[in-house]
Amino acid sequence: MRVALFSTCIVDAMYPKVAAATVSVLERLGHEVVFPQGQTCCSQMHVNSGYFDDAYPVVKTHVKAFSEWDFDVAVAPSGSCVASLGHQQPMIAERAGDTATATAAADLAARTFELSQFLIDICGITDAAEQLGSYFPEKVTFHASCHGMRLLRLGTRQEDLVRTVGGLEYTQIEDQDQCCGFGGTFSFKNADTSGAMVADKVQHIEETGASVCTGGDVSCLMNIGGALSRKESPVQTVHFAEILASTKENPLKVSGPVSVTAGGK
């Protein structure tokens, strides 16, 4: 398949290693990956902050960027950004009176998939160790991000793929379905409430004794990781694509500054 990578703005600028890991997994399965260079952001930050007028050119940019390319499906390492495409983009375009973009946005959203959805529902992957060669000998816990869980109804897809990674020991977090407190601009507009939420999340993560907390959205992981870092906790946060990309030959190193290098192909 020809897969268009929708990296998401935060992965592109802050966690390029997650995009690299996603590419690595997709190419391991024999797919051709392309990256529409015109892409920027899903517009969710503007929409969820109430800046609907400002969101409109961002929606147009996204739709235009992907319409310039031929591809079978688009894939993103984020539940939240994928959910935003179908859930918000058509509404924003309609509101601006741009029916053509609204229709195109809905069509594009219908063939854009979150990574675990793509791997399981389209590629039929059910065992990461066996079918992807994933190997990550760490004690790992998992944070279920809200939008993947409640807007995309991903269920246990991401978590299940992680649990089938070779060498990995899995431990489940208390109150797994509770929000980590990120919520986009909520995290600084309601900083104290958000801070109280992430403090509880971090406590539950530390209670598991895991060395790594993974999840499907780097925004939540940046929140959790930032709070762990603040209390100088040794627990690291990594995106589940990085764990899937990690192999025996080319293992993922979890500590140190973020960089573009990821587990091997």
Binding site: S7, A20, Q37, S187, V260
Partner: peptide
Amino acid sequence: LVGGWTDYRDIPEPPSTSFRNQWK
């Protein structure tokens, strides 16, 4: 305003290059 973020959390050091520039 964004100081609300760093009241409770750190921000990791940004990478030396974005994904798009590396890919290009």
